[in-house]
C-alpha cells in the first residue's frame, strides 16, 4: 500500500512539473497584463529545441536552457504583436500556437525517433530522498523538478514582496496609472512575456529531456492549454499553481497506475480524458465561487496600453 502510494505520488509529481513550469510563466505574463495563449506552441518549440541542443552538445544544462530560451524568444513575437502593435491578444496567441505546432512538426521531422542526446534522470537528493514515502515522492525527481520547487516560492516572492513585483502587478491592473507614475509599462510587459515564454519553453524541455525523452510531434498533448486554465484556478498566485498542477499530475499518475497494476476498473479511455475533464471542472468550480473572491484576475489582462489611446 505504501509502495503504491509512493509510486503514484512520484509519478504524479513527475507528471505535474511541465504544467507547473508553464503555469508559473503564464502567471507572470498575465500578472503584467499580457494574455499569451501561445503556451502550447512555446512548449513544443521548447521541447524540440531542448532535444536538438541535447543532440548537438550533449550537455543537459545547455539543452534545458536552449529549450527555455526558445520559448522566451517565441514569446517575444507575441510581445511585439500584443504590446507594440496592440493587436488582439487572443488571435496573436492562437497564431503563436499554430506557428509553434507547424514549425516543430516541420523542423522536427528528422529528430523523430532519435535518442535525445541527453536525459535528465532522477537525481535523488542525498538524505532527503531516504525519508519514507515523501522522499520517494518529492526527492527522487529530475533536476528540473527541483528547479520548479525553487521557482514556485521565488515567483511568489518576486511578485508579492518586491518593488519589481509591485510594478508588474500594477501594470496588469491599471497601465495608465503605472505610466503616470513614470514607469515604462511596455518594458515591464515585454519582460514578463519573455519570462512567461521561458517558463513554457522550460516546461517543454522538461517533457522532451526528462518526462518522455525524445522528440515526438505534438508531444505536449494540450498541457499548454491546461496550464493556461490552471492560471485561473491558481487565481494568478504561484503558490496555488502547485495545487492545480499536482491535481493534473495526480490524474495522469492514476492512469499509469491502473495500467501498470492491470486493474480494468475504469476503462483506459476514460482515464485518458480525466485530466482534461478535471481542468474544465476546475474552471467551473473556480467560476462558481468567483463572486466571493477578492481577486478574479488582473483588471487590465489582455488590454494593450497606449498613452494617446
Amino acid at each position: 500500500m505504501m509502495e503504491d502510494l509512493a509510486f503514484i505520488g512520484q509519478i504524479a509529481v513527475k507528471s505535474s512539473i511541465a504544467v507547473l513550469l508553464a503555469t508559473l510563466g503564464e502567471i507572470v505574463a498575465e500578472r503584467s497584463g499580457v494574455l499569451n495563449l501561445g503556451v502550447e506552441g512555446m512548449m513544443l518549440v521548447g521541447a524540440l529545441c531542448g532535444v536538438a541542443a541535447g543532440v548537438a552538445t550533449g550537455n543537459p544544462v545547455i539543452a534545458a536552457a536552449a529549450g527555455a530560451l526558445a520559448g522566451g524568444l517565441l514569446a517575444l513575437v507575441h510581445g511585439f504583436f500584443a504590446i507594440t502593435l496592440r493587436v488582439n491578444q487572443v488571435l496573436s496567441g492562437l497564431a503563436l500556437t499554430i506557428l509553434g505546432m507547424g514549425m516543430t512538426s516541420f523542423v522536427g521531422r528528422p529528430l523523430i525517433g532519435t535518442p535525445p542526446g541527453v536525459r535528465l534522470r532522477a537525481l535523488p537528493i542525498p538524505g532527503l530522498a531516504d525519508i519514507p514515502v515523501i522522499g520517494d515522492i518529492l526527492f527522487r525527481q529530475s533536476a528540473l523538478a527541483y528547479l520548479a520547487y525553487i521557482l514556485v516560492p521565488l515567483c511568489w516572492f518576486v511578485l508579492f514582496r518586491t518593488g519589481t513585483g509591485l510594478k508588474i502587478r500594477a501594470a496588469g491592473e491599471d497601465a495608465a496609472a503605472v505610466d503616470a507614475a513614470g514607469i515604462d509599462v511596455n518594458r515591464i510587459r515585454y519582460g514578463c512575456t519573455f519570462v512567461g515564454g521561458l517558463g513554457a519553453g522550460l516546461a517543454g524541455a522538461y517533457l522532451s529531456l526528462s518526462y518522455t525523452p525524445g522528440w515526438k510531434e505534438s508531444m505536449t498533448g494540450g498541457q499548454g492549454w491546461v496550464a493556461i486554465a490552471m492560471v485561473i484556478f491558481a487565481t494568478w498566485n504561484p503558490l496555488r499553481a502547485v495545487i492545480g498542477a499536482f491535481l493534473f499530475g495526480g490524474l495522469t499518475a492514476l492512469q499509469f497506475y491502473f495500467q501498470a497494476v492491470g486493474i480494468e476498473l475504469i476503462p483506459a479511455y476514460i482515464l485518458k480524458m480525466l485530466p482534461y475533464v478535471l481542468t474544465i471542472v476546475v474552471m467551473i468550480v473556480v467560476n462558481a465561487g468567483m463572486g466571493r473572491r477578492r481577486f478574479s484576475g488582473p483588471a487590465a489582462l489582455g488590454i494593450p496600453f497606449s498613452r494617446e489611446g
Binding site: 497564431a95 503563436l96 499554430i98 506557428l99 505546432m101 507547424g102 514549425m103 512538426s105 516541420f106
Partner: peptide, 8 residues
C-alpha cells in the same frame, strides 16, 4: 506541415 507554418 509547411502549410501550417504558412497559415500561422
Amino acid at each position: 506541415s509547411i502549410s501550417m507554418v504558412l497559415e500561422a
